[in-house]
Design a protein around this nucleic acid. Structure first.
Ligand code: FES
Ligand code: FES
Lengths: 150, 150
DNA sequence: TGAATATAGCATCGGACCGGTACGATTTCA
DNA sequence: TGAAATCGTACCGGTCCGATGCTATATTCA
């Protein structure tokens, strides 16, 4: 399917929001309302990001979330892995998926090449960071374009 | 989910097989048996590739399939689009998905950046061709590695 | 101290889509 | 004519995402 899940989309927006406000504590409700996201879904995502240590949670009244890592070091690859688990391009890139091993005639002819593609994808995702997404409000996406381009 | 479907996996192996034998006609059964793939699934995939014109089908006894495009011009992007439809990284990269428009507060702050990432992914997929996958049997994947690397 | 706020954790449910199967029709060759 | 092979379509089950609900816990504030 080669697409990001909606959770990753929510996570990306939320993390950008947190990066934008700096060290101020922002509640999930506030983020959700500001971007038209369903609150419970966003909370699920933020809980996961809290467990992986990418955001810090403050409970209680006037609580909320704060970004726990610097936007420049928070890669898209890490965000995806935190929210939706490790990336499996196809079965044979990662040893086995859900304990089931590949049933094709091993090794299949595309095995090595597909791993190479997998590595290229990971490299791409590791070059992109949250800092590339944050702070680009309306049309000034040039800084992002430059940073991402290579 | 950021992963290829199993259909794409089958398609990739089959197309590599066809590229490997040149212009010889090979039946779906033969390809399936040789790589331990379920025959009906492979046929479904080959039908799609036939409709998109990437392989040519010959019906009847002693029929089968022949690659209809050169491996060097058959990009991974085209193969994915043929088998599983166009790539949608997230909702806002392609205008609308299944007729449903994005319900987030428009435009969301990550809109421009995510499109840029989408473009980078498409570029990566367009640099990789079937020729990079074919002809790498056991361990001699160096030619592929080189061709893919940049 | 008590009420309000806000996150943590878990469990559940519905729907979409992939993976797989089945059947009949069509075409070609022996 | 019969066997081999593709073509088209339809169907079914499993998995996983998207979404919802409830309870527990921690903090703030009156
Ligand atoms: S798909 Fe299993 S080894 Fe390549
Ligand atoms: S997710 Fe809809 S505009 Fe970006």
């Amino acid at each position: 399917m080669l697409s990001l899940t909606r959770k990753t989309e929510y996570a990306l927006i939320a993390v950008c929001h947190l990066a934008h406000v700096g060290q101020k504590v922002v509640s999930a409700r506030e983020i959700a309302e500001q971007h038209g996201m369903p609150l419970p879904l966003l909370m699920n995502v933020l809980k996961k990001l809290n467990r992986t240590g990418h955001v810090r949670s403050i409970r209680g009244a006037r609580g909320g979330y704060v970004l726990a890592v610097s936007p420049e070091e928070f890669t898209l690859d890490a965000l995806i892995e935190a929210v939706e688990g490790p990336v499996h391009l196809v079965r044979c890139t990662n040893a086995d998926i859900n304990g089931r091993k590949c049933t094709l005639a091993n090794p299949c002819p595309i095995r090595k090449s597909v791993r190479k593609v997998h590595e290229l994808l990971r490299e791409l995702l590791n070059r992109i960071t949250v800092a590339d997404f944050a702070y680009v409000e309306p049309e000034a996406a040039q800084s992002s374009a430059k940073a991402v381009a290579q």
